[in-house]
Design a binder for these strands. Structure first.
Length: 290
DNA sequence: TTGCAGGGGTCAA
DNA sequence: TTGACCCCTGCA
C-alpha cells in the first residue's frame, strides 16, 4: 500500500478489497452519510472525515485528515492490516458464501469504539435503521462536541463522561423510547467500571459475552455486535432476523432455534464467522431476501 | 388524512 | 415460552 498526502487529506493506492459502499452499507455503522458524489462522510474517534474508493483501481481517498491520524486511527479503523483476500478465498469454498461475497466483495469490518457500539446496538433492538441513526444523531447533538467540515456542523459521539451527566429525562429527548432507560442505566454501570469495557475487550468471547450481558438492554445479539464491531472477536455470529432467515434459507432448512444457528455458524465458519455474517447480511439486504 | 402493523431484541412473568 | 415495549415509517 502506498500513502500520498494530498490537500487536507490522504490518498491510498494499492488497497485491495475496499469498497466504501459495501463497508458503510453492510449494517455495521450508523453514522455515515452518502454524499451526492458517492463518497461517505461520517464521524468516528471524535473526527469527521470523508471517504471515497475505487475498487478496481485499488484507490481510497480520505479527506479532512493527515498522515498522523491515518497511522494512529484510520489504518486500524478500516482494518487495513488484514488480508481480506485470504478470508474471502477460504469462505468461498462454500458456494453460497462465494455468491454472497461477489455482492459484497469490498466489505471490511471496522474497528469501532466499544462504548459507542454499546449505545448504538442497545438502540438497535426492535428498531429500524433510520430511527436508530436519528436517535444516535440526536444523542450526539445534545451531548457531543461540535465539529466543522465543509461548511457543515457534525457532532462527535458523546464520551462516557458527557453522557453520565445526563438525567433520564434528558436522554428521553433522543427518541429511543423504552431503550432510553437501558442507556441511562448502562451508562452508570460503565462509568463506575462495574462493567469495564477495556478489560472485557481482553477476555475470550464467551466470558466477554457474559460480562456485556450484565448491561440492561444487552442480550445475545447486541453483545455479539459489540464484540464483532469493536472488540475484534471474529468468532461471533450476531443473529438478527435477517441472518436467521438467510441461514435457514441457504444452510439449515426451515425454522430452527437460535442455538442451532449459533452452533451451525461455529462449526461451519469457525474463527471467520463474523466475516461470513457480514457478507451474508449485506447480501440478504440488497437482494431483499425474506 | 387517519389508522394500523411491524421493526437490526430484551426483559419479565 | 410469550407479550409488551417507545417511536417511527410505510402503506392501505
Amino acid at each position: 500500500m502506498h500513502i500520498k498526502e494530498i490537500q487536507n487529506g490522504i490518498l491510498l493506492e494499492g488497497v485491495k478489497d475496499f469498497d466504501a459502499v459495501h463497508i458503510f452499507e453492510c449494517g455495521q455503522s450508523f453514522r455515515w452519510n452518502k454524499e451526492n458524489d458517492g463518497s461517505y462522510t461520517g464521524v468516528a474517534y471524535g473526527r469527521v472525515i470523508n471517504v471515497s474508493s475505487n475498487y478496481e483501481n485499488e484507490a481510497v481517498t480520505i479527506n479532512n485528515t493527515n498522515l498522523e491520524d491515518f497511522q494512529n486511527i484510520w489504518h486500524d479503523y478500516f482494518d487495513l492490516g488484514r488480508n481480506y483476500g485470504e478470508i474471502k478465498k477460504i469462505l468461498s469454498e462454500d458456494s453460497v458464501m462465494e455468491m454472497a461475497i461477489q455482492h459484497g466483495r469490498g466489505i471490511r469490518i471496522l474497528q469501532q469504539e466499544p462504548w459507542e457500539m454499546v449505545i448504538s446496538y442497545i438502540i438497535s433492538a426492535n428498531n429500524n435503521i433510520p430511527s436508530i441513526a436519528k436517535s444516535l444523531n440526536l444523542l450526539s447533538e445534545f451531548y457531543g462536541k461540535p465539529l466543522q467540515y465543509s461548511g457543515k456542523t457534525y457532532y462527535a459521539f458523546p464520551t462516557i463522561e458527557e453522557l453520565e451527566s445526563a438525567e433520564l429525562q434528558d436522554i428521553n429527548r433522543c427518541k429511543a423510547g423504552f431503550r432510553c432507560k437501558y442507556i441511562y442505566n448502562s451508562v452508570k454501570l460503565i462509568h463506575s467500571k462495574e462493567v469495564d469495557l477495556d478489560s472485557i475487550k481482553q477476555m475470550d468471547t464467551e466470558t466477554a459475552r457474559k460480562h456485556l450481558m450484565r448491561l440492561p438492554g444487552v442480550g445475545p445479539k447486541v453483545s455479539d455486535c459489540i464484540m464483532l464491531f469493536s472488540m475484534q472477536k471474529y468468532d461471533t455470529y450476531p443473529i438478527d432476523v435477517w441472518i436467521k432467515r438467510i441461514t435457514e434459507h441457504f444452510f439449515v432448512g426451515r425454522d430452527v432455534k437460535m442455538k442451532d444457528i449459533q452452533s451451525f455458524a461455529k462449526d461451519k465458519f469457525g474463527d471467520l464467522a463474523g466475516f461470513a455474517q457480514e457478507y451474508l447480511f449485506y447480501f440478504s439486504r440488497i437482494n431483499k431476501i425474506m
